[in-house]
Amino acid sequence: MWKFTVRRILIMIPQIILLSVLVFLMAKAMPGDALSGLIDPNVDPERLEELREKMGLNDPWYVQYVDWVKNLFHGDLGTSFRYKMPVTELIGGRIVNTFWLSLLSLLLIYLISIPLGIISGRYHDTWIDRAITGYTYIGFATPLFIFGLVMLWFFGFSLGLFPTGGSVSPGLTPGTFEYFLSKINHLLLPALSIALIATVGTVQYLRNEIIDTKQKDFILTARAKGASESRVYNRHIFRNSLLPIAAFFGYELTGLIGGTVFIEKIFGYPGMGQLFLESITTRDYTVVTSLVLLYGCATIIGALLSDIILSLVDPRIRIK
């Protein structure tokens, strides 16, 4: 097992290096530069050139990339040109909100998908299976940002059941019970919006696994020996069908990255996703490159976790 893990980590290293190069080149390919639109247009063009020279914006891309990587190893992600503060501090203030949103979304995904998948698989070709399958088809066809807007309009503006922006109500003291309830209240609607769409893949996968497992020889043998139907499902079918779901934990985690970017913007939730979109529109390259690199590394690590968990569940896939 440890050999598989080490090899998988070694494969991950060149992926991260390639990711960093691509992220940097794509950021440099964006129109304008960090000074575009942020300085009074009446400023002398010669002064702008002096600033670009001082900031290294006129250096060749590979020189800028090497300097950027050196700073990364020293924990320096640069300074935000919009917020005039270190990127590490800026991201540090947002990453906690995104973490809690992702965690609650992931919890809701499993709380919704596992029961629905089990019910749909056990009672397949019945009216309840058709209803659950219809829900998954609608979920597959519905863009997350459209669904988020509908949820915000209906539950936020029309019914007024949830806040329509922010991460906590103003004026509350951190650490108090009211503060905690306010944080949860601001998290529920965006997390539920993500979960109701992201859960459909897991529901379909679990349903198909249960239907397929019911036809296996060991299930037929258990029934032939007189095992009760509840024992067959609880001890054999469900156990074998749920194991692969655990292996998709890492992929579920990485799938949340794209979801939180749009949901945070729609709900005005101050997380990394909202910061990412705002940084793109303002050409804040240091923030953009840092966040894309962070998202990319999280995706690679999530895939690594899934491979490791899957190798524990099914040793046949391990690299020899």
Rank of each mutant, 00 (worst) to 15 (best):
Thr126Phe: 05
Asn58Cys: 00
Ile16Ala: 11
Thr164Ser: 10
Ala29Arg: 06
Pro60Phe: 08
Leu107Phe: 14
Ser230Asp: 07
Leu111Phe: 11
Thr281His: 03
Leu172Trp: 05
Lys28Leu: 10
Ala227Trp: 09
Ile210Pro: 00
Glu49Tyr: 01
Leu159Asp: 02
Phe24Val: 02
Asp217Gly: 08
Phe248Thr: 11
Arg7Gln: 10
Val6Gln: 00
Ile138Glu: 03
Leu144Ala: 02
Ile245Thr: 00
Val288Tyr: 01
Val200Tyr: 03
Tyr135Gln: 00
Val6Trp: 06
Ser80Thr: 03
Tyr269Ile: 12
Phe248Pro: 01
Gly271Leu: 05
Ile118Ala: 07
Ser290Val: 01
Leu35Gln: 02
Ile11Cys: 01
Leu161Gly: 00
Glu278Asn: 15
Tyr295Lys: 05
Tyr110Ile: 09
Trp2Cys: 08
Thr142Cys: 00
Leu101Phe: 08
Glu89Cys: 11
Gly78Leu: 13
Thr98Ile: 13
Ser158Ala: 08
Phe162Glu: 01
Lys320Ser: 13
Pro41Asn: 03
Lys28Glu: 14
Leu161Trp: 12
Ile263Arg: 00
Pro163Gln: 02
Val292Met: 06
Glu178Val: 11
Leu172Asn: 03
Ala141Met: 09
Ile245Lys: 03
Gly92Gln: 12
Ser80Ala: 07
Gly121Leu: 01
Tyr135Met: 09
Ile95Ala: 15
Ser182Val: 05
Pro115Ser: 10
Trp68Arg: 04
Leu293Tyr: 03
Asn71Ser: 06
Thr286Val: 10
Leu181Cys: 13
Pro60His: 06
Ile263Asn: 00
Ala141Glu: 10
Ile280Arg: 06
Gly134Thr: 09
Pro170Arg: 02
Arg318Lys: 15
Ser311Pro: 11
Phe154Gln: 01
Phe147Gln: 08
Leu275Ala: 08
Asp59Asn: 13
Leu101Tyr: 00
Glu53Gly: 15
Val21Lys: 02
Pro45Ala: 07
Ile146Met: 13
Pro190Ala: 05
Asp129Lys: 10
Ile109Gly: 01
Ile211Gln: 07
Val66Asp: 03
Pro14Ser: 15
Gly148Ser: 03
Leu10Arg: 12
Gly175His: 04
Gly166Met: 10
Phe276Met: 14
Leu310Val: 12
Phe218Gln: 03
Leu149Ala: 04
Ser120Phe: 02
Val43Glu: 10
Arg82Cys: 02
Ser306Trp: 05
Thr221Tyr: 14
Thr254Val: 04
Gln64Leu: 12
Gly296Met: 08
Leu116Phe: 09
Thr173Cys: 08
Thr299Val: 10
Leu310Gly: 15
Lys214Ala: 08
Gly121Ala: 05
Ile112Ser: 04
